[in-house]
Design a protein around this nucleic acid. Structure first.
Lengths: 126, 126
DNA sequence: TCAACCTTATCAAAGCTGTGTCAAGGTTGA
DNA sequence: TCAACCTTGACACAGCTTTGATAAGGTTGA
């Protein structure tokens, strides 16, 4: 037995079954199904459910925010348009310089490549 | 005379004064102020207010979504955490391959550099 | 077989978002 | 001076989001 039912998954992750269905509906975690349609939560899903709670709590964001970030990642027309709009932002005194920001972007790029190639469980930067 | 008052800016951009204050409060467009505290909307702000309306309408997103995207850009701890969580997403059948996605990321990087160097009014990809 | 699960769908309530309106008071310019 | 702006703050309301509870019915395993 590898996969847990929705109630078992709720138990071990601290969510309610209701919320697991909601998290699925907004596209964040979509578990496999049995032939009869029962949801099956595997180790990967359980881990992601736990880290999702941390993510929300640590940064005071909501499920809708994470869903929007996912949408940004999947819809390149959207992310391009939002990026364009934000990039046109006038320089504010306390904002980072273009240089600093570009360096940050490059480091982020390196992180993404690393994540793609190693592809293990993510480091939960608690 | 270069800068418009809040009512004039509302008039020419299609927003209401109330909404311009709201847009400022959530951090999207923060106009300069006169000595007495009156908001002053310059050509840049007016253009951004107009393209903001297009952005929302074209992609069915809300002001809160744009505000979150801005927060993602400004708070690197947040964007790193969200990225990490999303990158751990299990491969879905219809998702793009890692190769395709990496290519997209590289092109995005190039677009960002282009935007930083040219730094003119953004092209509104209508 | 049948208790204890699971499914989807619906009603409901609390809270947040987006927006209007109004009040009390300061600024500006003819 | 004073009408016509501006400011912040508060009250209010419709609609959406988030979450729970409940109902009607299918699945499963001892």
């Amino acid at each position: 037995m590898e996969a847990l039912t929705i109630h078992e998954a709720a138990e071990t992750t601290g969510w309610t079954p209701r919320m697991l269905r909601y998290i699925e509906r907004i596209g964040l975690i979509e578990p496999a199904r049995t032939e009869a349609g029962y949801r099956q939560y595997g180790p990967g899903e359980l881990q992601r459910l736990r880290t999702l709670r941390e993510l929300l709590a640590d940064h005071e964001i909501g499920l809708g925010d994470v869903a929007f970030a996912l949408r940004l990642r999947r819809d390149e027309a959207l992310s391009g348009a939002v990026d364009s709009w934000l990039e046109a932002e006038p320089q504010r005194p306390e904002a980072v310089s273009a240089d600093e920001w570009l360096r940050w972007e490059q480091e982020k790029h390196a992180r993404i490549i690393a994540a793609l190639t190693t592809n293990e469980t993510m480091e939960t930067a608690a």
